[in-house]
Structure formats: structure tokens, C-alpha cells
Design a protein around this nucleic acid. Structure first.
Lengths: 116, 116
DNA sequence: AAAAACAATAGACAATTGTCCACGGTTTGA
DNA sequence: TCAAACCGTGGACAATTGTCTATTGTTTTT
């Protein structure tokens, strides 16, 4: 798959895909053409990109994502990957709790700030 | 209360407090001294700053915070404030849901990526 | 074949969210 | 009184996360 198709399918812009690639979030291979230098993306990338989009919305940084990608890469120890991902899961749960507190505060603001 | 005390009590740095003030998140008054131009912060600011710290961690932007502060300011209509805050609460809940999805994905990554 | 769409690369630009520094003045504690 | 700690201002600097543009070349469509 070339970048345009990937962009269209994932909803992530070409520029952003390239940005992610530069930052080690995805990798591509050079195509087999002799005449161009178009890169080739696997199905795999699409899944990751969709995850990235959600994860960024959930507040994870590109650096966080890179550490997950790296940890789950073939070369790494399964247990290491497990630990890294587990850690991120806990961070996300903390963040969700944090959101809960903020929501509570806001709800108090709503009910507590009546002028009458 | 002067900025140093506020910083110490809130755990937010002086520079950040000034940054927030520049961005309309808090306000201060000029002290009554004739000789200096030290600013004066009310107890109120401390509560807000603590909220800001949590809210930033929860992923709210400074712009989000400003809109909440502005909406809840005296000058604004109660109903407007209510709507703005309610909107933010919903955004936060969406974000929490989003985190849930990401966590699920990561858990699948964990259980689904065994090499055996 | 010509035009339109696509690709790679490189670098400029921008918003956000702070931090740090230097300056000159003030307050406070020893 | 003298140093240390504080304050305000203004601007420089930095990381993050992209977006946009220009340039050059390729592929696809008409």
C-alpha cells in the first residue's frame, strides 16, 4: 500500500504519517520499482495508525507510542513488552481517574455556583 | 497572598502561574504598597490552580480552562456557564471512553502477541 | 502526449506550554 | 546594614506535534 491509500484508509494525513515514520512509529519498505522511490506500507501500519489516532486523542504522546511500538517489536523480549504496555495501561487508568476528579470538580462548580 | 506563597501552596511554579495569568486563567490585584508593585492573589486562585493542575493532567488545554473560567465568571449568564461546563464534562467523558478503548487495544496486544 | 494526481525530501512555519535568564527594584532575616 | 530571598517585566529558548510549501520526479487518466 502506498502512502496515499494508507492516509485515506486511516484518516491520518500523509504529512502526519511521514512525521510518525520519522519518529519511529511505523516503518515502510522501498518498493520494487526501478524508476521511483515510492515507499510501501503493510496492512499492519493501518492498524497501528488507527490505534495512534485513538491513543493521541486519549492523551498519549508520540514518545509513549514509540515506546509501545518498540517494546512490541519482534526484537524485544516478550516480558519487556508486557511490562511496558502494562505500565502504559496503568498510566491511562490513572488519567481516566484524573478525568473523573476533574468532572466531579466541574459538576460541583455547576451545582455550587448558583447565584441564588 | 503573594505569588511565592501561591506557588508553594499550589505546587505550580511562579513562571507557570504568571503564564496562566497572562492567559486569563487567574487574575490578581495590585497590592496596596506604595513602594512595590507586588501582586496580590486571593484564596480563590489556589483552588483554581489546584484544579488546573489536575485538569491539565487529564488532558485539558489552557484554552479549555480559560473558557471554563470565563464562563463561570460573575459577568456571565449562569446558563451559559452551565452549558460550557457541561460540554467540557462530556468531552472529558468521551476522552475517558477513548482511554478505555486504548486500554482494550493494549490488553489485546498483550494477550494476542505471544510468540508461542 | 498532456494534464492531473501522486510521491519523496527538505525545510519553513505555527500553536501550545511552559522554562529560564537578565534586569532592576523590594523585603526580610541575620 | 548587608546579603539573601523575593518580586515584576520582557524576551529568549525549547520540546511537541503537526502543517504547508517548494522542488523534483512518477504514475495515471484523459
Amino acid at each position: 500500500m502506498r502512502i496515499g491509500e494508507l492516509a485515506q484508509k486511516s484518516g491520518v494525513s500523509r504529512d502526519t504519517i511521514r512525521f510518525y515514520e520519522r519518529n519511529g512509529l511505523i516503518t515502510s519498505t522501498v518498493g520494487d520499482s526501478e524508476t521511483n522511490s515510492y515507499r510501501n506500507y503493510k496492512e499492519d501500519c493501518l492498524v497501528w495508525l488507527q490505534f495512534f489516532a485513538g491513543a493521541r486523542e486519549a492523551g498519549m504522546s508520540v514518545a509513549d507510542l514509540r515506546s509501545i511500538v518498540e517494546a512490541t517489536a519482534e526484537s524485544c523480549d516478550r516480558e519487556v513488552a508486557r511490562a511496558v504496555v502494562q505500565r502504559k495501561i496503568e498510566e491511562l487508568r490513572d488519567r481516566a481517574d484524573q478525568i473523573g476528579h476533574v468532572v466531579s470538580f466541574l459538576e460541583n462548580t455547576l451545582s455550587g455556583s448558583r447565584s441564588e
